[in-house]
């Protein structure tokens, strides 16, 4: 595949049950592109955790995914409250999620660490009152079908 494929998703913030729909669609698209399954899984988890984060913390946001010849870029942008201390937010177990989110299986302070763990490049920019943008890069092997 030499052409670049761009996917755009609008993540609704008001409905936790819909969180993950974009990640599932992204995964379905990736399966058709000849990307190895383990890389698909990593990329899908990055997107899924990002989606969950945007629903929990930011009342939704926008996702742009660029699938190129040598890498996948996932850019998640929200207009949520922002993160005052990014270093703290990146620590495993640190969370500001409300208690009801924990009863849904999330909010354990693993989202951002998981996203960093599974991406080859991770960049987060945030300003309180403005929003947060996360850019993740997942490298693809050469000589793909």
């Amino acid at each position: 595949m030499t052409e670049q494929l761009v996917l755009n998703y609008s993540i609704a913030g008001d409905d936790f049950t819909k969180a993950g729909e974009a990640a599932a669609d992204f995964k379905t698209v990736l399966k058709k592109t000849g990307v190895p399954p383990d890389i698909i899984r990593r990329a899908a988890i990055c997107m899924y955790e990002g989606e969950i984060n945007m629903v929990i913390h930011a009342d939704g946001g926008d996702a742009e995914i660029i699938i190129g010849a040598d890498k996948i870029e996932i850019i998640l942008a929200d207009r949520g409250p922002g993160i005052p201390d990014i270093e703290l937010a990146m620590q495993e177990g640190y969370t500001t999620a409300p208690e009801n989110i924990r009863s849904l299986g999330f909010g354990a302070g693993m989202g951002l660490p998981n996203m960093k763990r599974y991406s080859d490049g991770f960049d987060i920019k945030s300003a309180p009152g403005v929003g947060t943008t996360v850019k993740m890069t997942i490298m693809l092997p050469k000589n793909r079908e």
């Binding site: 936790f16 049950t17 969180a19 993950g20 383990d38 899984r41 990593r42 988890i45 899924y48 955790e49 969950i52 849904l104 299986g105 999330f106 909010g107 354990a108 302070g109 693993m110 989202g111 660490p113 998981n114 763990r117 599974y118």
Partner: peptide, 25 residues
């Protein structure tokens, strides 16, 4: 029961036992 913990350990496990019953499981 904690989905983020499931997502934190990518191995080839193929069965999930859970008490969490919602779309996110």
């Amino acid at each position: 029961d904690l989905m983020s913990d499931v997502l934190a350990f990518v191995k080839d496990q193929s069965v999930l036992l859970t008490g969490l019953v919602n779309l996110q499981s």
